[in-house]
Design a protein around this nucleic acid. Sequence first.
DNA 1: GCCGTTTTCGGCCCGACTGTTTTCAGTCG
Length: 576
Amino acid sequence: MVSMTNVEMAGQFEALADLLEIKGENPFKIRAYRTVARVLGDHPAELAAELASGRDLTEISGIGKEIAAKIATMVETGSLPALEKIRAEFPPALPDLLKLPGLGPKRIRTLLDQCAVTTLDDLAAAARAGRIQTLPGFGAKLEASLLEAVTKRLDTTVRHLRATAEPVVQRIIETLAAVPGVKQVTPAGSFRRGRDTVGDLDLLVVADNPAAVMTAFTTQPGIARVLAHGETKGSVLFDRGIQADLRLVPAASYGAALHYFTGSQAHNIALRRRAQQQGLKLNEYGVFREEAPVAGADEEGVFAALGLPWIPPELREDAGEVEAAEAGRLPELIEERDLRGDLHNHTTWSDGTLSVEAMARQAAALGWSYIAITDHSQRLTVANGLDERRLAEQLEEVARVNSLGLGVHVLTGSEVDILEDGSLDFPDAVLSRLDVVVIAVHSRFKLDRETQTTRILRALERPQVSFLAHPTGRLLLERDPYDVDLDRILEAIHARGCFVEINAHPMRLDLNEVYARRARERGIPVVINNDAHSLADFAHHRHGILQARRAWLGRDDVLNTLPLEALLARLRATRR
DNA sequence: GCCGTTTTCGGCCCGACTGTTTTCAGTCG
C-alpha cells in the first residue's frame, strides 16, 4: 500500500480542478474538488489511517461517494487516475499560466486552441509578435500586461512570511491614515486571521473622501504596478512582489465588510449559506431581509443576525468553527499575556548573542516567571554546542544568576541533538541533572519517512525527555518539512506523557496549526517557545500565539502558561 | 460532485473591476 498524506491528496485534487477548469467542465463539480482539497488540508487526522481503521469518509462534509472512492484509490495506489487521464490531454506546463494576473481558464483555452501557446515562454513570444491582441477576449492592453507579467515574473500566487508583510501593512496604514477625512484603516484577510504566510494584503478603509484615499493608495512609493483603481476597490503590486488590495466602505457596512474581507473564502461561503437558509442575504454591505438591512456596522452584529456569537478571525477557515459557535462551544483562545515564561533559549555559550544573565534580565523585564536556558549539545559543532564539562559549568552560572534575585527563575536545560540512529547527544546521567530536556533534529533531514520517524520515536523513549522542538524542521518558503509520520510521533508523545513545541520563530511556526490542533485533540500540552538567540527574538511569542489560536488552543492547552511551581511539577512528572 | 427544517432533484455565495465590448465575459477574492 502506498500511503498518501492529506496534503498530498489535496494537491492532486487542486491540480485536477485546474485542468477541469481549462477543459470547461461543470463549475460546480470543480468547486467540489476544490472544497475537498481544502477540507483535506484542514482535516485533523490522516485519511489513510482513518480509512485503514474502517471509517466511512462520506461522513466528512465535502466528501461524497465519488470522492471517497477516489481517496481510497489514492491511498491504495498513490495516484489519482482522473488526474492522470486529464493530464494526458493537455501540455504539462499549461497550468503554470493560471498564475498570471488576468489569465484564467477561458483565456488559457483560447491561447492554446488559437495560438498554440502551451508555456510561459510561448506566451511571451506570441505577445512580442503581437499575436495575442487579435484573439477574441484579448486586446492590446491585456497583451502588454501579460508580457510584462511574464518577463518581470509578476506571480501573484507567491506567498510571503507574515512577519515580512507586517511592516508593509504598517506603512500602508500610516500612509492612508494621514489622508484627511480617513476615519478607520484596518487590515483584514489572511493577515488578520494570523496565517503564518500571506498571499496578498487586504485593507479596509472608512473615509469621507474615497477618491483621495484611492489616489493615495495607488501612488504610494515602491509600487511596481497598479492592478486596479476603482471607486471602492484598488489593487497594487509592490516592487517586492507583495500585492495589496484596498476596499473603501461606508461606516454602516464596516462590520460586514470587515467580516467579508477577513474571510476565509470558505468561511464566508459557509456563513452565506447559513444566511440563505434563514431567509437572509449576507454580503460585504450587511445582512439583509428582503432589501432591509438587519446588521452591518459591526462584526458582532453580523454574527448575531445569523444567530451566532462572534467568531475570532483565527478560527475562520470553515474547519468546524460555525458548528462550534452554534453549539456554544467555541474555545476560549490563548492570549500572549497568558504565557508566564519560555522553555527554549540560547546564549553565548552556544550560538546566542546574550549571556545567561542578560537573558534572565530580559525575561524579568517582560514580567515572566521563568526562562529555560537550553543551549545546543556537543554534536552541533557549528553552533558551538556544549560538551558535558561546559554544560556542568553552565549549571553553576545558572545557579549564580538565580542567586541575584532578579524575580525570574532560570531553569537549566539543553537542546539535545537527536543523532541519526535516534540516540541522544548526552547520556541519561547528564540529562537527569537538567530541569528541561529539549530534543530536536538538526541533521540528516532527507531520511526516508520510516527511518526518520523511527529515529524520533527512539529518541522519545528516553526517560528524561521534556519535549520535542520544531518537530518537522520546516523553514517557511525555504525548506520543506522533513518526511515524518507526525501522527505516530504525537501518539508516542501522548503515551510517553511529555510535550510538543510550537516554535514561535516566524520562519518556523512548527508545529503548524493543523498538527497543533491534533496535539490538542489528543490532550498533549503544547509549549510555545521563542527559541531566542538574541534580544529581538523575545518578540517571537506573538507569532506563536497566533499559530496556537489558529489551532484552537486555550490557556489550559499550553504548558508555559503554568505558574513556576506547577510547571516544575509537570516537568518532573514526565520523567520515568 | 455534493447536499437536504423547502429538496433525493435542482440547486450550488456574491459583488467589483477591467478590458473588450456596445451590454458583457472573464477574472478575482
